[in-house]
């Protein structure tokens, strides 16, 4: 599994170019998230791909060849933080509700919707944590689930920012 971060032009068709490239390289994308940055013209992607280190390098270098990709970086080997967000709708009757609340507490998740027969639980964290919560929720009856896919960021002073982006407090030197 390889994790890449890409800054791309925020315009139509760019997502298609990125996913089409992965398809062409026969690399399966496990998750791909896109979100805006403080520059409305630039979006940030986190791509998690089913491939080895060599595939990760190829994907990175090929992504950066796309005109609309400003920067692509394979951060798999770096110290990084990753987060996934899940909304899980689970069956909850009078009997099971207290047990569920216990579990939710342990996982530091929270209840965001309550209905007579079910709850929606919001949880964020690493993929493992969410998988762990899911596993213990399953016996209660998981009705529906939505996951955001991973977003990742390198830790500390290891900065990944689009070219030209100036941030007042930090020297923009450590970009590569």
């Amino acid at each position: 599994m390889q994790t890449l971060v890409a800054y791309v032009e925020n315009k139509p068709g760019v997502l298609n170019r990125v996913s089409s490239l992965a398809r062409r390289l026969a690399i399966n994308i496990d998750s791909l998230t896109v979100g805006p940055t403080d520059n409305p013209q630039v979006a940030r992607m986190t791509i998690v791909a089913h491939t080895d280190e060599k595939g990760g390098h190829r994907l990175e270098a090929s992504l950066e060849k796309l005109v609309d990709v400003l920067l692509a970086e394979n951060i798999s080997e770096r110290s990084l933080l990753e987060r996934d967000l899940a909304l899980i709708k689970v069956l909850a009757d009078q009997q099971s509700r207290p047990h569920l609340m216990e579990l939710i507490k342990v996982f530091r998740a929270r209840v965001v919707d309550v209905a007579p027969e079910s709850l929606i639980i919001e949880v964020s964290g690493t993929v493992d944590k969410i998988d762990g919560l899911l596993e213990v929720l399953r016996p209660f009856g998981v009705l529906e689930m939505a996951r955001s896919g991973r977003i990742s960021m390198t830790r500390g002073g290891d900065l990944l920012r689009p070219p030209g982006a100036a941030m007042a407090s930090v020297e923009p030197a450590n970009v590569t």
């Binding site: 950066e64 609309d68 920067l71 070219p163």
Partner: peptide, 9 residues
């Protein structure tokens, strides 16, 4: 006006 890309060292 092409996108400003990162220059790699």
């Amino acid at each position: 006006r092409l996108p400003q890309k990162r220059l790699r060292n």
